[in-house]
Design a protein around this nucleic acid. Structure first.
Length: 211
DNA sequence: ACCCAGGGTCATA
DNA sequence: TATGACCATGGG
């Protein structure tokens, strides 16, 4: 089993995922922060609150009183923390000049400055790089670690950068591929927990038996 | 009642 | 470098 074969099996089983579920790059960024250790259904609630208030843009979010923003973000959990993080992110985003300026930055510069924003760690930074800026950067999350470990492709406790480097070395450097692959891993983790038809292919069955 | 969810930070050793 | 505590709501 290689990373490329694993991708083929997941794609055959679940089909294209079309991630990230968002209308604009900025919405991807907001979602990436709000979904930290949080179920996506809860993120959708908060996102709808921001949209219905006409607040889903960097200026509004940045200018809002922190307590008001926290109240809007309540359904996502960690709402006080995420209010601070989201405002810090918007501060950086606005100061940099917004998406129309940032989209010309190099992968290296974008990633380094994203990681300097408080509350943005490696996974959130890579979510933003891959899904908002469409850069060929692979996102490593807990599901990826577990799946690789169960399939015997890795220990699972390797440093973030080690696993990211491995995906990026073994796969074609294509953002579209990375977008689908990460989405498929997440979808697989969700599906594998509940009853569903068995795979007929033995290798696929192996994939399906583990999360 | 318990567990986990599309993490990150900080203190401690 | 490597654990543990902390942040907190909602669904199973």
């Amino acid at each position: 089993m290689t990373l490329q074969l694993l991708y083929g099996h997941l794609l055959a089983r679940y089909g294209p995922q079309g991630w990230w579920p968002a209308d604009t790059p900025f919405e991807v960024m907001v979602g990436a922060i709000l979904t930290q250790n949080t179920a996506w259904t809860n993120v959708e609630k908060a996102m709808q609150r921001l949209k219905s208030g006409g607040l889903l843009d960097a200026r509004h979010i940045h200018a809002l009183p922190a307590a008001s923003l926290a109240d809007i973000l309540r359904p996502t959990g960690y709402f006080n923390l995420k209010a601070v993080r989201l405002q810090a992110y918007c501060g950086w985003y606005l100061q940099a000049g917004g998406f129309e300026v940032l989209k010309y930055w190099s992968n290296r510069k974008l990633r380094a400055t994203l990681l300097d924003v408080p509350g943005i760690g490696p996974e959130t930074a890579d979510d933003i790089l891959l899904y908002a800026f469409k850069r060929p950067v692979f996102v490593i999350d807990a599901y990826t670690r577990r799946l690789l470990a169960r399939l015997g492709l890795a220990r699972g406790d390797e440093p973030y950068e080690a696993l990211r480097a491995r995906f990026e070395a073994e796969l074609d450097r294509k953002a579209g591929l990375y977008q689908e692959y990460h989405a498929l891993i997440v979808e697989h983790a969700k599906q594998v927990c509940r009853p569903r038809p068995r795979c007929t292919d033995c290798v696929v069955r192996r994939v399906c038996a583990y999360r």
